[in-house]
Design a protein around this nucleic acid. Structure first.
Length: 265
DNA sequence: CACGCGGTACAGAGCGCAAA
DNA sequence: TTTGCGCTCTGTACCGCGTG
């Protein structure tokens, strides 16, 4: 019994129905430069037949031969982060005109996705300096997958690493606030060993204004600034401004170009 | 281990036509 | 008639993975 009415039409089906070879159908339907060498009569017959049979290209099969999936994977550890949302929007907008699809993984579990898919490009917003994770990335990079990892600690090993560069951005934020303030409060979850806070502290200690005015950075672990005993106060406007810069600037403001990636062969 | 899946890439066959 | 050339299309290897 024939299954032609129920089976999904393939290139082979279309070729048989149109009376041409598989290759001819492939050239016509893919718009391959070589299709210009195929007569308009034949090309039209192929297109009409494909349309009549409801043919749709099998991207998985195509990926086997070309090694291209037209898939761009974006792995975000925290989707609620304004920076992550901005990056997701930018990448989606950038890849769509190229005929590619952005696949966004919101829980940062990019390894599970890569177990059964091979994207053309992978963006990962956070990669721990774990040898096993890095080995996974190196393996995909060796297969020709372009990988961009945002990391403060990872070294480029066949793939790109973007340093968020907390210090320069903290410097900009502090200098901006110092135009109108001499005392700045920082709301931070921890003050020791935190790169972001260290960057603020370094900037504050880096120099003193010519008029001799002092610089004072007060840390507030837990999100509260020190005040009178028993009455912790909320941060003032300058403090909130600094916090704002810290969140947005720390990992790259979408409105500004990111730090240049470093790559090794 | 052999085979099949679907689409692509590429070498080359078949044909028509013009010039010698 | 032979030769050369260009156009159109064909046949098949190849890819990674699952299945028998």
């Amino acid at each position: 019994m024939s299954t032609e009415m129920t089976d999904k039409p393939t290139l082979r089906t279309v070729a048989a129905a149109a009376g041409v070879s598989i290759a001819t159908v492939s050239y016509v339907l893919s718009g391959h430069p070589r299709s210009q060498a195929i007569s308009e009569t034949t090309a039209r017959r192929v297109r009409d037949t494909a349309s009549r049979l409801g043919y749709r290209r099998n991207d998985a099969a195509r990926a086997i031969r070309t090694g291209k999936s037209d898939l761009v994977l974006l792995s975000l550890s925290v989707l609620a982060d304004p920076w992550a949302q901005a990056v997701a929007a930018e990448i989606s907008a950038a890849v769509t005109p190229l005929g590619k699809t952005a696949l966004i993984v919101a829980d940062g579990d990019w390894r599970t996705v890569l177990s059964n898919k091979t994207p053309d490009v992978i963006f990962i917003d956070h990669v721990a300096d774990d040898p096993e994770l890095v080995a996974d990335l190196e393996r995909f990079a060796a297969r020709g997958v372009q990988i961009v990892a945002f990391s403060e600690v990872l070294e480029p090993r066949g793939f790109d690493v973007i340093r968020s560069g907390a210090e320069p951005r903290c410097h900009l934020a502090v200098e901006h606030l110092l135009e109108r303030h001499t005392k700045i409060g920082a709301l931070t979850s921890k003050t020791e060993g935190a790169p972001r806070f260290d960057a603020y502290r370094t900037t504050m200690a880096a120099g003193r204004p010519a008029d001799g005015a002092g610089r004072d950075l007060r840390a507030a672990p837990g999100g509260r600034l020190p005040g009178r005993a028993g009455a912790p106060r909320r941060a003032g406007s300058a403090d909130r401004a600094l916090l704002h810069h810290g969140l947005r600037g720390d990992r790259g403001d979408p409105g500004r170009p990111p730090a240049a990636p470093r790559r090794t062969g």
